[in-house]
């Protein structure tokens, strides 16, 4: 028998595509899966919910979503890895620079 595990994270699609035994999902920007910076109340609540799910789940792919939000606005959702007509040229140049630095072609 393996070790019981729980994943605490903020990328719902990636973790569910992977498939894990237990997943506590908090829908806030990537980087703070255990709560907003300096928000000890949210952090403690998320960890407490993770322990509760660890104890209550009885089958794989058990996902639970916490009620916590980042703030009043939703603009963070569209800005991550954004591709727009305005930044296409800049992104292409960034990619070329990366490949040149690593010395390999685009593939």
């Amino acid at each position: 028998m393996g070790l019981p595990t729980i994943v605490v994270g903020s990328a719902l699609d990636i973790v569910e595509y992977c498939g894990v035994p237990r997943f506590l999902f908090t829908d806030i920007p990537l980087g703070n899966p255990c709560g907003k910076p300096e928000d000890r109340t949210m952090q403690r609540a998320i960890v407490r919910r993770a322990l509760a799910l660890l104890g209550s789940a009885d089958e794989p792919r058990s996902t639970q979503t916490t009620p916590f939000v980042w703030g009043d606005h939703q603009s963070w959702r569209s800005s991550y890895a954004q591709v727009t007509e305005d930044n296409l040229d800049a992104l292409r140049a960034l990619g070329e620079a990366r490949r040149a630095r690593r010395g390999r072609p685009s593939s």
Binding site: L30, G31, G35, K36, P37, E38, Q43, S79
Partner: peptide, 21 residues
């Protein structure tokens, strides 16, 4: 790959919650 425009990882408890645990 985290959201470097909207947040930061200077508070370690946000991803390694040792003190909360």
């Amino acid at each position: 790959a985290w959201d470097k425009d909207n947040t930061h990882t200077n508070d370690v408890e946000t991803f390694l919650p040792i003190r909360a645990l």
